[in-house]
Simulated scan of single mutants.
Amino acid sequence: MSDSPSILVPLRVLEGESIPEGVPDLLTNAHVVLLGYHVVPDQTATDQARNQFEDQAIRRLDDYTAMLEHAGATVESQLVFTHDGQTTIDRMTDEHDCLAVLIPNATRPLKNVLVPVRGIVGIDRFVRLISGLFGTMDVNITLYHVAEEDETDADVETLLNGVASRLSDEGIPSDLIDTEISREGSPRSRIVDTSGDYDAIVMGESDPSVTTFLFGMTADQVGKQFLGPVFVIQHGEANGAEEADHE
C-alpha cells in the first residue's frame, strides 16, 4: 500500500465551516493539511484581522485537529488571513506537496467511490491518492470515462484497464475495481448525473477546477445533486499573495 497521501482540507474557519459528519473516517489513512483561512476585505490589513480573530480561529482549528487525529489521520494545521482565498489554497497545496484538495461535504459510510478518468495525465497522482486512502478499506472504486467521438471502446478500455492494473499493484483488490464508459453528454454533465450513486468523488482539477468548485456556479450546481466529499487532484503551480500565517 502507498504511504499516507497529503490532503489539503480548506475551511473558512470564521464563517461557520467545520469538519462534516463522516469526513474524519474518510481521512483515516491521510496526512491532512488543515487550512483554516479567513478572507479579509482589501481595505483591511491582514495583521489587523489576525489580531482581532486569531484566538477564536485557533480554538476551532484545534478542535478539528483533535477530531481528525482521533480518526487516525496525522494533521498539521495552518491559519491564514488573506485577501485572496483561492491563491491561499493554491499556495498551500504547492508548499505542502498535497496530492489533492478535499471539498469536505458530509458523507455516509463509504462504500462506492467514483473516479472520472480523462487521460494519462496525472494518473500517477490518482493511483497514489486512491491506493493510499482506500487501500485498507472495503470500498468499491469505479473508473469512469466519458468517451470523445474519436475514441474507440478499445482505446478507452486500454486506458481504464491500465489504471485498474496499477491500482491492483498498489494493493486495491481487483474485485473492488469497476470500469464504466459513457458516450452521452459532456464530461461535466455526465459526472454530475452519475455521481448520485456514489459516496465520494476523486477527480482531476480540470474536471472542473477547484476554483470553480469552491467559488463558482458549478459548485452550486454540483452541490444540488451530489452532496458528498470531492477530492480534487492538483497539477498546477501556486501563486504568491500577501498573507499572515499561523502554524
Rank of each mutant, 00 (worst) to 15 (best):
G16V: 00
L35Y: 00
L14Y: 02
P41R: 09
S18E: 13
S18P: 07
Q43R: 13
E17W: 03
N29F: 12
G36H: 02
E17V: 02
L14E: 03
N29C: 15
V39C: 05
D42F: 11
E17Q: 05
V32Q: 08
V39Y: 06
T44C: 03
E21W: 15
L35S: 01
V13T: 08
L35W: 01
D25S: 14
L14H: 03
V33Q: 10
L14R: 04
Y37D: 02
G36P: 04
D25Y: 10
E15H: 08
I19H: 02
Y37H: 04
L27K: 05
V23N: 08
V23L: 12
T28F: 11
P41S: 14
S18N: 14
A30N: 09
V23C: 14
L14S: 01
G36C: 13
I19A: 04
S18D: 06
V40F: 01
G22H: 13
Q43H: 13
H31L: 14
N29E: 15
A30Q: 10
L26P: 06
V32N: 07
E21V: 12
P24N: 11
E21D: 15
P20E: 01
P41Y: 14
L14I: 03
V13H: 04
A45K: 11
G36T: 04
L14P: 05
A45M: 08
I19M: 07
N29Q: 11
H31D: 15
V23I: 10
Q43V: 11
D42W: 09
T28E: 07
I19S: 01
E17G: 05
V40W: 00
Y37F: 15
L35A: 06
L14D: 03
Q43Y: 09
T28Q: 03
L35G: 00
V40T: 09
G16N: 02
V40D: 00
H31P: 09
H38D: 14
V23K: 06
E21P: 15
V33M: 12
A45T: 14
A45R: 09
V40E: 04
Y37E: 06
V39D: 09
L14T: 03
P24M: 07
V32S: 06
E21H: 15
L34Q: 11
P24A: 09
G22P: 07
E15Y: 04
S18K: 13
I19L: 12
V39G: 06
L34T: 05
G16Q: 00
T44D: 03
V23F: 11
V33E: 10
E15K: 12
H38F: 09
S18I: 10
T44P: 05
L14K: 03
V39K: 10
P41V: 04
H31V: 07
L27E: 10
P24F: 12
N29R: 15
V32R: 14
V32H: 10
V40R: 00
Y37G: 08
A45N: 05
D42N: 07
L14A: 10
